[in-house]
Each structure stands twice: as C-alpha cells, then as structure tokens.
Design a protein around this nucleic acid. Sequence first.
DNA 1: CTCCTGTTTAGACAGACCTCGAATCAGTGC
DNA 2: GCACTGATTCGAGGTCTGTCTAAACAGGAG
Lengths: 125, 125
Amino acid sequence: MSKQELPVVDVSEAACCAPLACEPLNAAEADELAPLFKAIGDPVRLRLLSLIACHEGGEACVCDLTGAFALTAPTISHHLKVLKQAGLIDSERRGTWVYYWINPAVLERLSAILGPRQAAGLVPA
Amino acid sequence: MSKQELPVVDVSEAACCAPLACEPLNAAEADELAPLFKAIGDPVRLRLLSLIACHEGGEACVCDLTGAFALTAPTISHHLKVLKQAGLIDSERRGTWVYYWINPAVLERLSAILGPRQAAGLVPA
DNA sequence: CTCCTGTTTAGACAGACCTCGAATCAGTGC
DNA sequence: GCACTGATTCGAGGTCTGTCTAAACAGGAG
C-alpha cells in the first residue's frame, strides 16, 4: 500500500518555475493542480495537514489527530484518505498505529505556483 | 486602485511567517484560510486566475476570458464572483466592459503558508 | 427612444461532498 | 482462541457546488 502509483504529478516538470502569473495555465495543468488545492480547501484537512507537519518527528499517529476535532474517527479517516489520494501525505502502519507524514515536495510546488516570482530573487529588505 | 476595503484578512498579521509546518493552525485560522484554497480548488477558477494574472496590464475583460472555456457566460460570471468574494480578485466596470485583476497580496499569503520556510523575505515593519 | 452587445442575477437540477453510525479489518495481549 | 483497542470501509442522510436556460441590468450606437 505504500508504493502504489500516486496520482501525483511529476514535480521535476516545468511546474517548478511557472508561478501562475507567468503564463496562463492550460486546461490540463489546471485539471491536475486544482484537486490539490481542493484537498486543502477544507478547514479540517488544512488543519490535519498542519498538525501532521508540525508534529515532532515529522509524522503523527491518527490517535494524535482525532483529539483535535469534534469529529468521529471515520470522518478523520476520510479526510486523511483524501489528503493521501491527492499525494499531499503518505502513511505507514507500525503495529497498532498508523502514522502519517506530509510530502513536502508537493506543498512546495503549490507554494511556488502561487508565489509571485520565486527563484528570481527572494529579496531581503 | 482606489478602494481599500477588502474582505480579506490583514496580511501583516501573524500569517506572513507561519508556514503551516511551523505551528499548528487553530480552528479559526483554518476556517479563514480554507475558503481561499477552496476558491482556487476548481480547474476553471484556477485557470481564470491565471488568465487574469497573465493578461497584459494585469487586468482582463470578461470577454477575454469566456473564449478560453467551453462554458456559458453565466457560468464564468459565477466563478468570477466566487473568486471575488474570496478576495482573490477585484473588478471594475468601464463603459461596456468589466475588468478584473488579481489581489497579489492574498496569493502571496497563501504561497507563504504552503511554503517551506522562506519566511523572513517579506519583512514587516 | 429603441435596439444591440456585454455582463450579471435568478431558478433549477444532477452530481459531489461532509458527516455519521454500524460493521469490518489489523495487531496486541491474555 | 478470544477479547480488546486502533483504524478503515460501507451505506445513508442532508447540504453544498457547477452548470445550464431564461430573464434582467448596464452602456453605447443609430
């Protein structure tokens, strides 16, 4: 279950330097990127992502996450699945518990796409 | 260029340096940010945003946008409304046509939140 | 004034989404 | 083997969303 083919796109593609305002996205690119933003377009999932990213060791057990929400375990599990299918996180079972960690490359890609003109110059004041 | 009363959150707030992986988002922050990502979580809206951002002069007429999609004018208008209500774009009517332009500050904020830790680049005060 | 073009609003409908309870799967320990 | 805990899957509800057609609104031209 850990090495199934992800629906994720190739990060090394042209995407790294096309900040949305550089040249218009074509339909294919938009169809590919929009689901990623959609995945984090939910308060619960956005917070889950943050909780996982901030957790010590860079990974968090599901049991660490459920407590932060007034939601049932199946609902949390559902949201984690959405994030995973989007390629934003990955998981592994270790004994009784399942651990999740984020995929930094995907987040960086999204950040770069929204960013003004990264790479060019990060301009310190 | 003249009106400043955006429904958008204050960019100079703590947001500029909290890249999602720094410390966990609380529920209030997530409720505020998620709708922005949700707005760009649709292929049509993501492409609209890109088309507007890339258009010469930094602004685009609705008539320039509708041609890029196999959708009716009301549908495009609906998506533009969603983007505008999220604070990602703004618009103004000039004679017969209505022009849209993006709000770079909001995009930068979203980029910074997803970004790895570039943080210090933007420097408040 | 009247017509025409560009844009938005209103209403409707199929499909997707969030959440839950109940059931099931996966490991650990008695 | 059996019971227990952690996590996921399944099916169902109510709500939200994307798209359309039809109609209304805003300006410019004749």
